[in-house]
Design a protein around this nucleic acid. Sequence first.
DNA 1: GCACTATATGAAAACATTAACATATATTTG
DNA 2: CAAATATATGTTAATGTTTTCATATAGTGC
Lengths: 104, 104
Amino acid sequence: MVAEANDIKLNKEKYEKAAYILKAVAHPTRLAIIQLLDIQDNLTVNEICETLNCEQSLISHHLINMKLRGILKSHKDGLNVYYSLKEREITKLLSCIENCECNM
Amino acid sequence: MVAEANDIKLNKEKYEKAAYILKAVAHPTRLAIIQLLDIQDNLTVNEICETLNCEQSLISHHLINMKLRGILKSHKDGLNVYYSLKEREITKLLSCIENCECNM
DNA sequence: GCACTATATGAAAACATTAACATATATTTG
DNA sequence: CAAATATATGTTAATGTTTTCATATAGTGC
């Protein structure tokens, strides 16, 4: 076994963190939210709900989840809360998957 | 709303497929398997178990799962089954996540 | 064919995520 | 301050994933 392969198990924490972020992205609705915010930054919860045709509290849960994981950020203005991508890098995951010839 | 944003909901199937692949990757052990096979192609189930210090049947479930989703391929030689990456592209997901400043 | 090894399979238990619903909170406006 | 609106929160039910364990299958060498 090469030296590098031995190190794999030592990176346990690294894989746990990466899986934690990937899990936040690995959901159709959350992927749609990410793509939507990539096209049009700074949308309110309602705008996202309407565009994705999805219930408010469900979208809210998804948004808060992604914010917690550092993928999104938000700011409040009056009644509205505007969400946007905190990590634009994250959109590359989608293109990466699209370039992939696995069972898509 | 810009035209593109309207298309988002039409891509439902695209997001479902992408999420399906991302889910297969979003697990610490499966990430470790992918990285291991990136470093050292064509490993037996046992070699993977030993390197990752993980039970045989659990690794087998993970491998079969990833094979099913087109991420891995395998060939049998005698008693051994050798697994390798079918989609090297998939390793880019990890580097993508690593470049990301989200809560890793 | 028997013992051995490597891998796969199946089912159940343990655990985690998602969706749905009801309701709370905060802000604005009249 | 009451009504209306936007968003968040909490709880539960439904669903899905992961782990474990027991066992099956398939190949090798005697």
